[in-house]
């Protein structure tokens, strides 16, 4: 991976996707508010993520970045505003001038197109690595187990864990577990991948192996939103860096702009602490 790619020249792959780029964004977040009890966590957030782009969200803890990510696949319900992914509203269906809340079954179906990787991996400890990856495509998408198993083995190979298929999650290191979790999310062939601080629970020496997997996915043109504290990763991989503070997006733009020449005082203060 050479120096940060300049979109004009090196971006041949995504240039083919100009049609998609001008079309509706993959993720469209509009005026989203969310409170937990009396605590307002999101205070009106707007965000667009275009197909094939990598968006990295930075911000101090408690700034609402994880909550924002969780609203995108409806793990949290928004109080106001709306979110659409790949052209369809998340959690609701429009009919005439009314929005109908979706049934749980329909929400679950929507989620199969959005992969989510958790900070604490949340692998199923009683299932083998292979079964962890196979479970959702078989039960949620009703795909034949045999095909899914073959695909799962290929995915495990891609994240460098082909030899761990029959191990249980507890027998793996944190970095290996997170790579399995990524393979598990990819098994559904999602249109969008969401990463919620994927390396925050890892020992420092294991962070690199997980970030490498995410980088490869990014370079293959997977649309993804990554909440992280890894500034170096943001600089190298992000198309857009979003800085959040106190439930709002303070500023966003190309990594070079936001990270090296932040316009906002709060962004500067945050970066001076983490860099």
């Amino acid at each position: 991976m050479s120096a940060p790619t300049s979109p004009a020249t090196d971006d041949g792959m995504t240039d083919d996707g100009t049609v998609e780029r001008t079309a509706a964004p993959m993720v469209d977040v509009r005026a989203v508010h969310k409170s937990f009890g009396s605590l307002e966590v999101l205070k009106g957030v707007d965000l667009e993520v275009r197909t094939g782009e990598v968006t990295v969200i930075l911000g101090p803890s408690g700034s609402g970045k994880s909550t924002l990510l969780r609203t995108i696949n409806h793990l949290e319900k928004v109080d106001q505003g709306w979110i659409s992914v790949d052209g369809s509203l998340v959690g609701y269906r429009r009919s005439g001038d009314k929005l109908y809340e979706l049934r749980e079954r329909e929400i679950l179906k929507q989620r199969t197109r959005i992969g989510f990787v958790f900070q604490n991996f949340n692998l199923f400890p009683h299932l083998t690595v292979l079964d962890n990856v196979v479970e959702a495509p078989v039960s949620a998408l009703k795909r034949p187990r045999k095909d899914v198993t073959e695909a799962a083995r290929r995915l495990l190979d891609r994240v460098g864990l082909a030899d761990k298929a029959d191990a249980y999650p507890k027998q793996l290191s944190g970095g290996q577990q997170q790579r399995v979790a990524i393979a598990r999310a990819l098994a559904l062939e999602p249109r969008l991948l969401l990463f919620d601080e994927p390396t925050s629970a890892l020992d420092p020496e294991l962070v690199g192996e997980v970030l490498d997997v995410i980088k490869v996915l990014a370079h293959q043109g997977t649309t993804m939103i990554v909440v992280t504290h890894e500034i170096g990763f943001a600089r190298e991989v992000a198309d857009t860096v979003v800085f959040m503070d106190d439930g709002r997006i303070v500023e966003q733009g190309a990594p070079g702009d936001v990270l090296d020449a932040p316009k906002h005082e709060r962004t500067r203060a945050f970066l001076s602490k983490v860099l």
Binding site: L75, E104, R105, K109, R111, T112, E135
Partner: peptide, 14 residues
């Protein structure tokens, strides 16, 4: 609770 959350995020039926 992360187990149910992961299962829900993967769209596994209830």
């Amino acid at each position: 609770s992360g187990q149910l959350e992961a299962a829900a995020a993967l769209g596994i039926p209830r």
